[in-house]
C-alpha cells in the first residue's frame, strides 16, 4: 500500500505544475487582469505602468518558450515569469502579496488556523449528521423519522449555502436581535465560548450542506447491506442490534460512504470561501476571494496550487482508507 501511496504522491508535482501553468496562463490572458493598473491608480502614465511591470517582473515573457508568427516560430527566453516563480516556489518562496507586500506564505499561515477550524468543524458536524441520520433513516425505513431525514436531505442538497448563511445572520437578528460574533478571530484556546459562537453556526450550515448527500448515500447503502444474507445470519446468531448495525452492516457499507465523505470535504472546502466572506472570518477562503478581486497574482497563484495539493491529498487519503476499512482491498 505504501508503494502505491508513494507512486500517487509522485504524481503530485506533475499536477501542481499543470495547475500552476494553467493558472499562470489564465491570469495573464484574461482581460482586466493587469495588477499594475490596480496598483498604479487612475491617471497613471504608461511609463508608470511600465515601471510597475518591471518591479513586479511582469515585463518578462510568461514562459521559457514563446511562439512566434515567423521562423523559427519558437523562441527560447532567458528570463521568464513562470521559471522565476517556480524556482522561488521550490525554495518555499511564493512571493509577496501586492496589497500588503507581506510574504504570501506568512499571510497564508496566519489565516490557515481559522479556515482549518471551520472546515474541520463542518466536516465533523457533516459526518456525524450524515452518517448517524443516514443509519437511523435506514433502520426505521418509512417511519416519520425516515421521512423527516429524507426531506431534510433534499432540502440540504438543494438550498445553496450562501442563502442559508445569509439566513443564519438575518433570522436571529430579525427575530431576537441576536448575531453570532462577526469579524475578527476568537481563539479556541483563549476564548472557547466566543470561538464556538463564531465558528459553530457557519460550520453547522456548511456541515449540513455537505451531509445531505452523505445522509442519502448512507441510507441507501445501509438498506442494501441490511438485506444481505450475512446480516440475517448475524441476527439468527442472536447478536445484538447495535453490534449487527455497527460491526457488520456499517463496516460493509463504509467504502462508498468514505467516497462521499471525500466529496463532502471538497464541498465544505469550497463552501468555506463563501462562509468566511459572509461571516467576515479572516481565513484562507476570504483571502482567496479578496485577492481575486484585487488581482493579487502571487496569492491567487499560491492558493490555486494549495487547493490542488489539498484535493490530491484528500483523494489519496480516501483511496488509502479503502484498504483500512475493507481488508479485501489490496493496492499493488
Amino acid at each position: 500500500m505504501w508503494r502505491y501511496a508513494l507512486r500517487r504522491l509522485l504524481f503530485l508535482p506533475l499536477i501542481v505544475v499543470l495547475v500552476a501553468v494553467f493558472t499562470f496562463v489564465l491570469l495573464r490572458v484574461l482581460p482586466g487582469q493587469d495588477p499594475a493598473r490596480v496598483m498604479a491608480g487612475q491617471g497613471a502614465t504608461p511609463d508608470q505602468i511600465k515601471e510597475i511591470h518591471r518591479q513586479l517582473g511582469l515585463d518578462y515573457p510568461v514562459f521559457p518558450v514563446s511562439l512566434r508568427g515567423e521562423p523559427p516560430f519558437v523562441q527560447l527566453n532567458r528570463h521568464d515569469q513562470f521559471s522565476k516563480w517556480l524556482g522561488a516556489a521550490l525554495r518555499g518562496d511564493f512571493g509577496v502579496t501586492y496589497q500588503s507586500q507581506a510574504p504570501v506564505r506568512q499571510e497564508f499561515a496566519r489565516r490557515f488556523p481559522a479556515s482549518f477550524e471551520l472546515i474541520l468543524l463542518a466536516l465533523i458536524i457533516g459526518s456525524v449528521f450524515g452518517i448517524s441520520f443516514g443509519i437511523l433513516s435506514a433502520l426505521y425505513r418509512n417511519s416519520v423519522l425516515d421521512y423527516v431525514v429524507r426531506v431534510f436531505a433534499v432540502f440540504g442538497a438543494s438550498v445553496p449555502e450562501f442563502f442559508l448563511l445569509t439566513l443564519l445572520i438575518i433570522l436571529p437578528s430579525y427575530l431576537f436581535n441576536y448575531a453570532p460574533p462577526i469579524g475578527g478571530y476568537h481563539s479556541l484556546l483563549r476564548e472557547p465560548m466566543l470561538n464556538l459562537r463564531q465558528f459553530g453556526p457557519p460550520a453547522l450550515i456548511l456541515g449540513i450542506g455537505g451531509s445531505a448527500a452523505l445522509m442519502r448515500l448512507v441510507r441507501t447503502t445501509m438498506l442494501e447491506v441490511l438485506r444481505a444474507d450475512y446480516i440475517r445470519t448475524a441476527q439468527a446468531k442472536g447478536l445484538s442490534r447495535p453490534t449487527i448495525v455497527l460491526t457488520h452492516a456499517f463496516r460493509n457499507a463504509a467504502t462508498p460512504i468514505v467516497t462521499a465523505l471525500g466529496t463532502a470535504f471538497l464541498a465544505v472546502f469550497g463552501g468555506s470561501v463563501i462562509a468566511e466572506t459572509i461571516m467576515s472570518i479572516q481565513g484562507v477562503g476570504a483571502f482567496f476571494f479578496i485577492s481575486t478581486l484585487s488581482r493579487d497574482l502571487p496569492v491567487i497563484q499560491f492558493l490555486a496550487v494549495y487547493t490542488a495539493v489539498v484535493v490530491v491529498l484528500a483523494n489519496l487519503i480516501i483511496d488509502l482508507s479503502y484498504a483500512l476499512i475493507d481488508r479485501r482491498v489490496r493496492y499493488s
Partner: peptide, 18 residues
C-alpha cells in the same frame, strides 16, 4: 474597528449590540 464585509452581517451585529 471590526471587519464586516457583508451588509446583512453588519446590520445583525449592530442590532446585537456588537
Amino acid at each position: 474597528f471590526t471587519l464586516v464585509t457583508d451588509p446583512n452581517a453588519a446590520l445583525a451585529a449592530f442590532k446585537a449590540g456588537d
